[in-house]
Nucleic acid binder design. Structure first.
Length: 551
RNA sequence: GCGCCUGUAGCUUAAUGGAUAGAGCAUCUGACUACGGAUCAGAAGGUUGGGGGUUCAAGUCCCUCCAGGCGCGCCA
């Protein structure tokens, strides 16, 4: 099905042959939407804007959808849907399996790379953002009919494992007895040991070679470390209610065997060249080269990311790549994408997007660290949130706070603000949902409401009060909002939409008695409650937030 | 030094080049034996960091300056 906005757009575009520049009306008295196209066309044609607007109004046939169009100000065309069109659109939406969300005509295989915690390190607030944002984007893209391939690029490979394994052997620890806390503590001891004992450092370096060579004992201990951390990741994912499972794990280690070929192929293609003993790529217009192979022959994360691109296109069949990684990595991805395109591994038909995001800041407005200067663990943060609110509400608060402002901006982790039950917060949206649900429950108990009412031909006849009309209009914008998030990869747009919906719901709730209304009006209003409840639940689900029936 | 990002009301923030910059919090004023007040209605609060420019129209695009953050060859 196509949304009201889509229908409007098509009518105008067909009549004009150009983008009608439809925008939500700036003020209620201007109607529901406005078209600004007359001003542009008038300028291009050297005519008066209002004349052009009048011509357009005469040209577009919208009698079945809208009230007569009006021209205002310098040449804006104001558009107001008829109540019947609004009700029909909402009715269709309620009978659509996807609640009106447009199913893509060109389903793709979208790889979403997110979360990416490190083995033997506790998950911290930096992982939090990637996890929450990536999960939301995955859900939105799936809702549009794409196949989403989640990739959790965990840090399970690299030089740190040499010293970790070596430390375990030196201490005589049984790797099977490790848990998350003890492996983290072990990592800290290994780091200190590495820094102060040259003999140990040398042994650790040899241990890296053994790991890469597949030495069985080294591999066994390494695997034990991963298993311990994996269990910790999964606990965090379950707690947060994100989709990631073991099936989505694709850590750095799986690309290890592919790295030499990446270097060799880039060299053979002439994309990478030897410089100062390293194999590097000089990216056009960029001073800093991308280092594919270090001068000691080892590989860094550039090589891993390039190997991952080849794997994701070649093996996973990706048609679109999305990386949900902190904003500081923007330059790195720019270089990696450039290199992959240059090498022909990433054709122009496959978009590769880095969804960067700002940092989570502490109360002092600086990078979130403990007093000792260490990263704040995710668990401790979530524990703290759950002291303020029940688990469902606490997670909603944390996730919504993370998703509700522009991605590229930093934000301060402020529990009081995010758990507030009023204002633009997760708990407020959950509350609006619970209220709608409450009315339906009561109505059902009194025999006023049953899902069978949806089998009718449409809404009961009757006009809409302003609060009802505003609510219906907002409900019909749900598909457009989801489409927008899918296109821009900006979850905060969905948050704004849902907040506006909850606000419209609250106004309706206040102004329009449901259970005490006369039967026909009551049925209309119950259907509105039902619609609000479903759209809020579905919208929150796309954000990865649960919508409890009661709070 | 080069590059990227940010700067909007006291605070947190929205705004695909369009009308009077839209919200929330806090503040003030109203509405409660309520379809759960975990609420709603209203008021007040802005020279969108400064200065130029482009445009019929600029928070948005261009230039410049200021402030803050981040990144810039062998960590990931």
């Amino acid at each position: 099905m196509s949304s009201l906005y889509d229908q409007l757009y098509d009518r105008f575009a067909t009549a004009l042959g150009t983008d009608p520049e439809l925008r939500p009306a700036g003020r209620p008295e201007f109607g529901h939407y406005q078209s600004n196209v007359a001003l542009r066309l008038a300028n291009e044609q050297g005519r008066k804007p209002r004349d052009v607007a009048a011509e357009i109004v005469a040209q577009v046939d919208l009698a079945d959808l809208c009230e007569p169009l009006s021209i205002a100000g310098p040449g804006f065309i104001n558009i107001r849907f008829t109540p019947a069109a609004l009700q029909a659109a909402l009715w269709a939406q309620l009978h659509d399996a996807a609640l009106g969300i447009a199913q893509t005509a060109t389903p793709g295989r979208v790889v979403v790379d997110y979360s990416a915690p490190n083995v033997a390190k506790p998950m911290h607030v930096g992982n939090l953002r990637s996890t929450i944002i990536g999960d939301c984007l995955a859900r939105v893209l799936m809702s549009q009919g794409h196949t989403v391939i989640r990739q959790n690029h965990i840090g399970d490979w690299g030089t740190q494992f040499g010293m970790l394994v070596e430390q375990i052997l030196v201490e005589g620890v049984d790797a099977a007895t490790l848990d998350l806390d003890s492996s983290v503590a072990l990592y800290k001891r290994a780091q200190a040991h590495f820094a102060e004992d040259e003999a140990f450092a040398e042994a650790a370096r040899r241990r890296v070679v053994a790991l890469q060579a597949g030495d069985p004992e080294t591999r066994r201990i390494w695997q034990a470390l991963i298993d311990v951390s994996k269990a910790g990741f999964n606990r965090a994912y379950r707690r947060l209610g994100v989709l990631l499972t073991d099936d989505d794990l694709a850590g750095e280690s799986i690309y290890n065997s592919l790295l030499p070929a990446v270097a060799e192929d880039l060299a053979a293609l002439g994309v990478a060249v030897e410089d100062q003993g390293a194999l590097v790529v000089f990216v056009d217009g960029d001073d800093a080269p991308l280092i594919v192979r270090k001068s000691d022959g080892g590989f860094g994360y550039a090589a891993t990311d390039l190997a991952a691109i080849r794997y994701r296109l070649g093996t996973l069949g990706a048609t679109r790549l999305i990386y949900v990684v902190g904003a500081p990595q923007a330059h790195h991805f720019q270089q990696v994408f450039w290199t992959a395109r240059k090498a022909g591994w990433l054709p122009a038909s496959v978009p590769a997007e880095h969804v960067g995001f700002g940092s989570v800041l502490g109360p002092d407005g600086k990078m979130f660290k403990t007093r000792e200067g260490k990263a704040v663990s995710l668990d401790s943060l979530l524990d703290e949130a759950e002291q303020v609110a029940a688990p469902d509400v606490a997670m909603a608060a944390v996730k919504y706070a993370d998703l509700s402002n522009s991605l590229h901006k930093d934000y301060v982790f402020d529990l009081d603000r995010m758990t507030a039950t009023t204002g633009n917060t997760g708990p407020y949206l959950q509350y609006a949902h619970a209220r709608a649900h409450q009315i339906l429950r009561k109505a059902e108990a009194e025999g006023y409401w049953s899902p069978a009412l949806l089998d009718a031909a449409g809404f009961p006849a009757g006009s809409l009060e302003p609060a009802e009309e505003a609510l219906v209009l907002q409900l019909t914008k749900f598909p457009d909002t989801v489409a927008e998030v899918g296109a821009t990869l900006q979850p905060h747009r969905l948050c704004s939409y849902l907040f506006d919906l909850a606000t419209a719901m609250s106004a309706f709730y206040e102004q329009c008695p449901v259970l005490k209304a006369e039967p026909a009006v009551r049925t209309t209003r119950l259907l509105l409650c039902h619609a609000v409840q479903r759209v809020l639940a579905q919208g929150l689900d796309l954000l990865g937030i649960v919508a409890p029936d009661r709070m």
